[in-house]
């Protein structure tokens, strides 16, 4: 079953996407040269941007008819704009969960999500001392802990070497499989798509009109 599909999708009259079908529970890589509209496509999927024409269907329903906040919580985009609050790792979980009006996970659970993202820090660690790559992984861990139905990762390994990138994706995918989570990855790294992709969608075909 397709969890997300698109029809005649056009953004701002200059990116025309091929029709896209994303199967539930799969690990799907979006590839295409830079500027082909991969990040934009993810923002269209979570309705932070609207297409100029065409339609996107989530679980068979046109997303125009879905409450956008609920959609974003289920189709969660881990974007490239990494942002962490000042304070400790635990404070960050606390802040993000209070924004979502949810109880934060307990320490064991937080440590579990950190370990998936290859982080082994005490929860009291201040985020200001984290390196760019560590901050990015903590950011991913926080998003992942919300256990969405679809997780969209935009260049999740941009600040990592190949070895770490592979471990990170392997563990994320392992979690996704147990939770029946669909994973959509935008990555330039061919090593990763070769190893992990169950489906590759090339949007290079999308035309600049």
């Amino acid at each position: 079953m397709d969890i997300i599909k698109t029809k005649d999708l056009v953004f701002e009259d200059f990116i025309r996407y091929p029709d896209i079908y994303i199967k539930k529970g799969k690990v799907v890589f979006l590839v295409g040269s830079s500027g082909s509209g991969k990040s934009t496509l993810l923002k269209l999927f979570n309705a932070t941007l609207s297409p100029s024409s065409g339609a996107i269907f989530y679980e068979g329903k046109n997303i125009d008819e879905i409450d956008t906040l609920k959609l974003r919580q289920e189709v969660l985009l881990v974007g490239q704009s990494v942002y962490l609050f000042d304070g400790s790792i635990k404070d960050n979980f606390n802040r993000f969960y209070s924004y979502r009006e949810m109880n934060m996970p307990n320490e064991e659970e937080i440590k579990y999500f950190l370990s998936i993202c290859q982080l082994d820090f005490p929860l009291e660690t201040q985020t200001s001392i984290l390196s760019g790559g560590e901050a990015q992984r903590l950011y991913t861990a926080i998003f992942l802990s919300f256990l969405p139905k679809v997780i969209m990762l935009d260049e999740p390994t941009s600040a990592l070497d190949t070895q770490n990138a592979k471990s990170l994706l392997r563990d994320i995918i392992k979690l996704a499989k147990t939770k029946e989570m669909t994973v959509i990855v935008v990555s330039h790294d061919k090593n990763l798509s070769d190893e992990f992709a169950e489906d590759i969608i090339d949007i290079e075909g999308s035309k600049t009109i």
Binding site: T48, L71, Q73, G79, V82, Y83, Y99, R100, Y139
Partner: peptide, 19 residues
């Protein structure tokens, strides 16, 4: 100066007003 924060919270499904 805090665009990333706004984008992050939007992606998490937080109400714009609250952001």
């Amino acid at each position: 100066s805090q665009r990333k924060r706004v984008e992050t919270l939007l992606n998490l499904g937080v109400k714009p007003k609250k952001i």
